[in-house]
């Protein structure tokens, strides 16, 4: 074994420099040219940072579009899901409670239209997006509270829907809400 120990130590030192120093510095350098300069992409309103584009934040006010439930209270320094199994009675009760709450806050909405994403916690607890259906079903509530025509909000959702050839369509909740405030 002794014959191999010295080369092992030397190789380890050299590779630490290559892989733990040079490599991450190189990537950090390349990322300087990327959107957000490698610090994460921020969203601004009137020149002020209001959040990260890819990180969900809580919107408890009914006059805003609300993101998906979070098992970690939208804590972006401690991500995670609920880790509840699909047959766990406690989990199923939580989902039922969320449906009931949603129906109270969104009168006039057809229960059969509620997409599951709005009553289940995301994997990261920070899911920044909704499906177009998840955003549209909140339009009635917001239009009533803000006294704006529903059609105007449907158009807003449509304008913020990102479609792609591969993968699902999505709406970024934070950017949608920034646009919602600018609507007047």
């Amino acid at each position: 074994m002794k014959k191999y120990l010295l080369p092992s130590i030397k190789l380890t030192v050299a590779l630490l420099v290559l892989l733990a120093v040079i490599y991450p510095l190189l990537i950090a350098g390349i990322a300087k040219m990327a959107p957000g300069a490698g610090d994460g992409v921020k969203v601004y309103r009137d020149g002020k940072v209001v959040g990260y584009e890819n990180i969900a934040q809580a919107f408890s006010d009914d006059t805003y579009f609300q993101p998906r439930p979070s098992a970690v209270g939208y804590n972006a320094a401690g991500s995670g899901g609920s880790n509840k199994g699909p047959t766990n009675p406690e989990f199923l009760k939580t989902v039922q409670d969320r449906i009931d709450t949603f129906m109270v806050h969104n009168p006039g909405v057809n229960k059969a239209d509620i997409p599951t994403e709005l009553v289940t916690a995301s994997g990261s607890g920070l899911d920044p997006d909704l499906s177009p259906e998840g955003a549209r079903i909140q339009v009635k509530r917001i239009a009533t509270l803000r006294r704006v025509p529903e059609q105007k909000l449907y158009d807003l959702v449509a304008a913020h829907t990102q479609k792609s050839l591969l993968g699902p369509s999505k709406v970024n909740v934070l950017k949608l809400n920034v646009a919602l405030d600018e609507l007047k």
């Binding site: 059969a112 239209d113 599951t116 916690a121 994997g123 499906s131």
Partner: peptide, 15 residues
């Protein structure tokens, strides 16, 4: 009684 499509969204991400 909610929308029957995509009922396995717990722990998944919309995007």
């Amino acid at each position: 009684g909610i929308n029957g499509a995509n009922t396995a969204m717990e722990g998944k991400e919309v995007r």
